[in-house]
């Protein structure tokens, strides 16, 4: 009696999967979602055998310039990333890189209080990670968050633009303003080091706040909100960082945590939020003590903090700043040796 329903259900599901696959292909071919990140992952696979280093974490990674480090590295960071996403991404992509020797991970004062899965407003970032990470290992959700995993994996089908990109690419070649399109193309460009967009040349004016100050304050407040909502968050981030270290060490990969330079203005902002900075320091010290991690803190380095010409805003280095800092980091870490290994 149940044979007919079962057979029909199986055919229905199979037909559905076939249609879905066709739609995925159409979507990815004509107007891929998260195209820059997908291109980045494609390049990662392309250069997989050459890549010696990758850097993950948040936008403070703008301070990394592999050319200056004389290292064949690849940028895999995304703005606003948290430690759970760092682990998720590394777990999925590290097995693809046979010659990977170094992983650089940024730490900011809010790192131990941040979880993009905490509230709706940041779920999009989490979903982006799920959407762009291509391997089988990427099907393991962060904190059992199946909802966003499914949404992320279905992103090419359940498109936020309601398939407008695809329709436009079929019907017209000139959707939107041409200049805007060119600008978007530049921003979406991925260089051979996996850097999306361009290293900013723009220089910050000495001691004059930009809009970033308010953004930073909002981020600090958000991290406090997350901490209040889940007081165990710092412990969870710590466990994840520890798991990351162990996972990478099992593969003989060197893990380097670092806090790149930020301006005096940013330091003053963070100093006003002592518990946040203190908590980050406390957990970093615990990681150093229990796992002997390498951690380099340049956040208050006077060689950089007062030199606003190295930054394009309060906590992000511009191209020249990144070049100088990266040489310094390479020197301290002895990367010349890595390249020869």
């Amino acid at each position: 009696m149940m044979k007919l329903p079962l057979a029909q259900t199986i055919v229905f599901v199979l037909a559905g999967l076939l249609i879905a696959a066709a739609l995925f292909w159409v979507s990815d071919t004509l107007s891929p979602v998260y195209s820059a990140d997908k291109r980045r992952l494609k390049k990662l696979r392309q250069y997989a055998n050459e890549i010696e280093a990758i850097n993950v974490g948040n936008s403070h990674n703008r301070a990394v310039d592999y050319e200056a480090m004389e290292l064949r590295g690849f940028h895999l960071w995304k703005p606003g990333s948290d430690m759970f996403e760092v682990y998720y991404l590394l777990n999925a992509v590290v097995p693809l890189l046979p010659n990977l020797k170094v992983v650089l991970i940024t730490i900011s004062p809010m790192s131990f209080k941040f979880d993009n899965g905490f509230d709706e407003s940041r779920h999009g970032m989490r979903r982006e990670y799920y959407a762009i990470t291509p391997t089988i290992r990427s099907w393991r959700p962060i904190h059992g968050d199946m909802k966003n995993l499914i949404k992320g994996k279905l992103a090419p089908l359940v498109r936020e633009d309601c398939w407008r990109g695809v329709v436009d690419s079929i019907l017209v070649n000139t959707s939107g303003d041409e200049r805007e399109k060119q600008k978007a193309a530049v921003m979406n460009a991925v260089d051979e080091y996996g850097y999306i967009g361009l290293h900013f040349e723009k220089r910050m004016k000495r001691g004059i706040e930009t809009d970033r100050s308010q953004e930073l304050l909002n981020l600090i407040r958000k991290s406090e909100e997350i901490f209040r909502g889940n007081p165990k968050i710092a412990g969870e981030v710590y466990e994840t960082a520890a798991a990351t270290v162990q996972m990478l060490r099992q593969r003989d990969i060197r893990v380097i945590f670092f806090s790149p330079p930020v301006t005096q203005l940013a330091n003053e902002l963070f100093a006003g939020e002592t518990p946040t900075t203190a908590l980050a320091k406390q957990y970093i010290q615990r990681l150093e003590k229990e796992f002997g991690i390498e951690y380099y803190d340049f956040s208050q380095d006077h060689a950089f903090a007062q030199k606003y010409e190295y930054f394009f805003n309060e906590d992000h280095m511009n191209k020249s700043g990144a070049r100088i800092f990266s040489r310094r980091l390479a020197e301290i870490c002895g990367f010349a040796k890595v390249a020869k290994m």
Partner: peptide, 22 residues
């Protein structure tokens, strides 16, 4: 007919996935 059932159900299902507000 069975093919019509599949066609209608799939059309609705994919219309929801493609054009629905999630």
């Amino acid at each position: 007919p069975l093919w019509a059932q599949y066609a209608v159900s799939h059309a609705l299902l994919f219309a929801i996935l493609m054009f629905g507000e999630f």
